[in-house]
Each structure stands twice: as structure tokens, then as C-alpha cells.
């Protein structure tokens, strides 16, 4: 029996999307990080960008011989060893509920849990940063407890503020700047995730981890 193969697809001539098979997990993400590091050094690659168990490979010069290039990518994946990134653990103080958490009632209604239970469950795990994306400094986190999963909002909110801690489906995250979002905002933090004046503008990188610390619960 052969294992399911990763899926390759085109994003125009700008990039190739590599999607690992199977459920989203940390082991696969460590292989994506390894593949990203390897492919970044290939000729014609501008930037390799990890997503959630997938990798976008942006071309500076798209290869004419695409099939040979894809075969090389599949071969590399078969032999790659996971790159277990061990970054920093960053604590993020959060005020849950109140004005900064306008959708906590929707999470309460959907999950049937109390605000205290939601806060306890949300602030318990150490969340690994899988990838950055969406907007400057934004992190895709793994490891949210499925008990507080809440569907994305039917009508996206036009502007949620930077620092909004929110739940969308079975993921959680923190907006790094003001912008539209379809997620449910349950709290807020003053932590600054992106500052272009800093030597490394993004606070977090793949392999870092996040722990939400309860600063206050507003009922």
C-alpha cells in the first residue's frame, strides 16, 4: 500500500501550492517547516510560505519544466525529516468578555458552557504557532480544545480591532491590526504583534508558542 500523496496545484504562474495529506497535526507541520527550509534554497524560488499543513512556493522565475520540478518536490517530501522548531513561549494577557469580547455570548450559546468554563478551557493550552499569514503579524495557532469550537459568523464584522482574541471554527487567534473578520471575538489583549520599526517586525514566528493568561473576566 502506498501512502496518500501530497496534492500539488497551481496558483497561476506566481506560486505552487503543496498540501500534505491527512489530518492537521504537529508532526506534519514539522515536516512542512523542513520542506519550506529546503525549498527556499532552490533556484527560481522567491519565498516558501508555510500554511496549515501546506506550503506555498512563490516563484521569482517560474520553471518551464514544471513536471520535473513537481517530481523533485514529491521526492524531497518522501525523504524529508521533520524539523522540530523549538521557539519561545510568549504569555499573552487577555481581558475576556465585556466590551472587548462582544461575541462571547454567541460562544456561550453555541457551546452551552459558562463564561468561566470557556475562559478556563481557552486559557489552558500552550498553543503552537504553525504559520503566519492573513495580515502582518497574524499567527495561525494549533491545539484549540474542540469543546469551545464555534462556527464562523454568518455575516463578517467589517472591523474588529487589533488585539481581538477570537474563535473561528476549531481555531483561535489574535488580530494583529484593525480589519474585517468572520470570527467570534471573546476577549482583547494589548500585546503588540507587529511593529515595522523593530528588527524582527513580527512578535511571533513558526515554532513559537502562545499561552493566554487571564488578566480579567468581564461578565
Amino acid at each position: 500500500m502506498s501512502e496518500p500523496r501530497p496534492r500539488l496545484s497551481l496558483l497561476g504562474t506566481s506560486a505552487l501550492l503543496f498540501e500534505a495529506p491527512g489530518e492537521t497535526d504537529h508532526e506534519t507541520q514539522a515536516m512542512i517547516w523542513a520542506l519550506s527550509k529546503e525549498v527556499q534554497s532552490w533556484d527560481g524560488v522567491r519565498e516558501a510560505v508555510p500554511g496549515m499543513n501546506n506550503l506555498m512556493i512563490n516563484f521569482s522565475v517560474p520553471p518551464r519544466a514544471l513536471e520535473r520540478w513537481e517530481a523533485r518536490l514529491q521526492d524531497t517530501w518522501r525523504t524529508i525529516k521533520p524539523l522540530p522548531l523549538q521557539g519561545r513561549l510568549i504569555e499573552i494577557p487577555v481581558i475576556y468578555g465585556g466590551e472587548g469580547g462582544p461575541h462571547i455570548d454567541d460562544v456561550i450559546a453555541h457551546t452551552g458552557l459558562s463564561i468561566d468554563e470557556i475562559v478556563t478551557i481557552h486559557s489552558a493550552p500552550i498553543y503552537p504557532v504553525y504559520a503566519l499569514g492573513s495580515h502582518p503579524g497574524y499567527c495561525y495557532l494549533g491545539g484549540m480544545d474542540a469543546r469551545i469550537a464555534t462556527p464562523r459568523r454568518k455575516v463578517p464584522v467589517l472591523k474588529i480591532p487589533g488585539g481581538a482574541v477570537s474563535i473561528g471554527g476549531n481555531q483561535t487567534g489574535v488580530s494583529a491590526s484593525d480589519g474585517p473578520s468572520g470570527w467570534n471575538t471573546i476577549g482583547t489583549t494589548k500585546m503588540e504583534f507587529f511593529n515595522v520599526e523593530r528588527d524582527s517586525p513580527a512578535l511571533l514566528a513558526p515554532g513559537d508558542s502562545v499561552k493566554f493568561v487571564v488578566q480579567e473576566v468581564r461578565r
Binding site: L11, G12, S14, A15, L17, E19, T24, V49, G51, M52, N53, N54, L55, M56, N58, A131, G133, S134, H135, Y140
Partner: peptide, 27 residues
Amino acid sequence: RSHGIVPGVIQVPHGGQPIIQMRDAQP
């Protein structure tokens, strides 16, 4: 699952009316 996209991608939300991501789209 969330993945990288580029300007020019034609996405189709649930309503079926496509959106082409342009230069300021999220990546």
C-alpha cells in the same frame, strides 16, 4: 485549511459569486 494565496486567485465563497484577490488581498 488556511493556505497561502496570491493576487489573481479566483475564490468562490458559499454564495457562488467569485471574488478575485487583488494586490492588497490578505496573503
